[in-house]
């Protein structure tokens, strides 16, 4: 039998993986190897698979992903810094049948937007919150964020983060998991093909939860920022595995639905 030529394999009927139709042709402005691109792609693939392009509204944050509306062909709203959950709440309440998700980085969600994050989850809003945690302020030049690891050198902590001065890294996902309004809280990463597949499953589950109206779904994606960390993408993945995963362990933290209101009602507490 004659050897199969590459030209014979590259045919439309043999295509098994390619760019999602939800992604636009605009080239991504992110640095090379940035995790944002992978998560954008996963969100696009999930929207395509669930066939909800017309019903999905994204709320973009302030940060590197501020221009996310250029890349996914769905409806978008832009929120002030940290206020994406509040804007998403408003949109979801006015249009309960829409799928609403917020997409935020750690400087947005875990620093300036902590109050909005906590209260949106505590109210049990039926939105999806995607949280990209790269332990640094990427867009503004690699300053220290609340999620920066202890001892990690950044442009505002050149000798490493010092607990005496700067406090401890903030585990916002664990905080959120304690709130009664949370339905699904998970921490994922996208540094290997296996983790990418798991992360996609988590995002899909979160969007399905949004349909069922069972509470807030919160997905943290532990990511890299190779330009902020000043190493190459492959080394950044290794650094993340060695230094971030022990502190930010991957896996589901809460999986179910929001607590019933009877549990906290005055009549019940009196008994």
């Amino acid at each position: 039998m004659a050897e199969l030529q590459i030209q014979d394999i590259i045919k439309p009927e043999n295509k098994v993986y390619g760019k999602s139709k939800i992604m636009t042709d605009t080239p991504l402005h992110y640095c090379y190897g940035c995790s944002h691109g992978v998560v954008h792609k996963l969100v696009a693939e999930v929207i395509e698979e669930l066939d909800i392009q017309e019903e999905t509204v994204g709320v973009a944050p302030v940060g590197c992903s501020v221009m996310m509306y250029n890349y996914l062909d769905i409806d978008w709203m832009e929120a002030a810094h940290g206020r994406a959950p509040a804007v998403a709440t408003g949109y979801k309440r006015v249009n309960p049948k829409k799928y609403v998700f917020s997409y935020q980085g750690d400087g947005d969600l875990a620093a300036i937007g902590t109050a909005e994050t906590m209260h949106a989850v505590n109210r049990g809003e039926n939105i999806v919150m995607i949280f990209i945690n790269n332990a640094i302020y990427g867009m503004t030049g690699g300053q220290m964020a609340p999620t920066t690891m202890i001892g990690q050198a950044t442009s505002t902590s050149p000798y490493g983060r010092n607990v005496d001065i700067n406090g401890y890294p903030l585990k916002i996902t664990e905080l959120v998991a304690h709130l009664p309004g949370a339905a699904y809280v998970t921490r994922q990463s996208v540094h290997t093909p296996a983790n990418v597949r798991k992360c996609k499953k988590a995002i899909k589950k979160a969007f399905e939860n949004s349909k069922k109206n069972i509470g807030t779904s919160f997905i943290e994606v532990v990511s890299t920022c190779n330009s902020g960390w000043k190493i190459d993408p492959v080394a950044a993945n290794k650094w993340m595995e060695e230094n971030m995963f022990p502190f930010y362990p991957l896996g589901d933290i809460k999986d179910g639905q929001r607590d019933s209101d009877e549990k906290y009602s005055v009549q019940k507490l009196k008994k």
Binding site: K15, V16, Y17, K19, S20, Y30, G37, P193
Partner: peptide
């Protein structure tokens, strides 16, 4: 695998 980790969605995979 290559397509899934590509941040810029520039890889298309074919299989027979």
């Amino acid at each position: 695998n290559c397509g899934q980790v590509c941040p810029d969605s520039c890889i298309t995979v074919y299989r027979v």
